[in-house]
Amino acid sequence: MIRAALIGNPNVGKTEIFNRLTGLSQNVGNFPGVTVEKKAGRLVHREQEIEVVDLPGTYSLTAHAVDELVARDYIVLERPDVIVDIVDGTNLERNLYLTMLLLEMDANLVVDLNRWDMVAARGTKIDVEKLSELLGCPVVPTVAITGKGLEDLKNSIVDIAGKKAARGRRAAQNYGNDLEQLISKVEEIIKEIPELTSKYPERWLAIKMLEGDESVMEQARASLSSSQLAKILCIIEAGEAAIK
């Protein structure tokens, strides 16, 4: 069975996509430990069973809002086979921020370019192939309200579920030499702690530490030795001073 999760900014048509994918086979529960509603449903496509979980709509994946934390924990801890990132095609600039964060998490991503009809209506042209190449993941245009493109989306989900090897650093993921150096320095230290790397992607951990993310830092304090922690704090401090 393929485990897929839907994520996206609020108001991009995520619920419609979810309903289109799963139809009436939905069940509603809660994410463990919190009251954030967890909707899940199933479908069968090309003889593959797909379980779809609807994650809360968010703009970002920080540790301070409940919805965002739930979504990100689900992605890093439950490691679904495919993450479908639903993006409003008429507002790529804002929507791609979440996509960047998902790429950092090394998620096995399919970008759903929704509201394709409106993109066309505005006379905007998007080079889907090139976008897919730059992001390093499939990009599927859809129109959730009419169901257009949904078959392509299902195909992409099934196709990419098997291709975990394709993951890794994408073209989109170059944050400039200074930051990339900091990231690799922290990564090097993290690499030695299987306790962390077995659970989380290294690059993501490194970025979150550099950003001073509360919940990751807490994890780090628990599993790093004091000398390792000191080294990382040292890198952060140096980076902080160097970047103005």
Binding site: L92, L96, T124, K125, I126, V128, L131, L134, Q173, Y175
Partner: peptide
């Protein structure tokens, strides 16, 4: 990064 991606893929 987003700006450069959008620049090279989107014609408004």
């Amino acid at each position: 990064r987003i700006a450069s991606i959008v620049d090279s893929t989107v014609i408004k």
